[in-house]
């Protein structure tokens, strides 16, 4: 994941405010990392995965991405580690592991 930066803090001066504080760049919050909230992370076992997509469907954080081969991967830049994906997986293909474990 490439390092993304936002113009905030000392870089952002009052002249940078758009009229009426309007944000003209749609979806710009996608630059924000929420992966660092995580205390546990999902590990997807490709062997068990049947590409059903339920993990993708139920993820509140849009942190499961569909790959070209039809499998799914977690986007750890965003994944907050809630564990919903592991819970809804009918094949037990997703395990949550503690963040400090490698």
């Amino acid at each position: 994941m490439t390092e993304k930066r936002l113009k905030t803090g000392p870089d952002f001066i009052w002249r940078d405010m758009e009229v009426g504080n309007i944000v003209t760049e749609a979806g710009s919050a996608a630059l924000r990392r929420t992966g660092d909230w995580r205390s546990q992370r999902p590990i997807i076992d490709k062997e068990r995965c049947n590409k059903c997509g339920l993990c993708w469907l139920y993820c509140p954080d849009v942190a499961i991405k569909l790959l070209e081969d039809g499998y799914y991967e977690t986007d750890l830049f965003y994944c907050k580690g809630c564990g919903i994906c592991a819970k809804v997986c009918t094949r037990e293909a997703i395990t949550m592991i503690e963040e400090e474990e490698e």
């Binding site: 919050a29 996608a30 929420t34 993820c59 509140p60 954080d61 830049f77 965003y78 564990g83």
Partner: peptide, 23 residues
């Protein structure tokens, strides 16, 4: 649809049911 109209990087709590419902 794979289109996401609410971008990633939002700050809903971990495991928020509302965030999913909104998505």
């Amino acid at each position: 649809t794979t289109d996401e109209f609410v971008a990633e990087g939002h700050s809903f709590c971990v495991g928020c049911g509302e965030a999913l419902a909104l998505r």
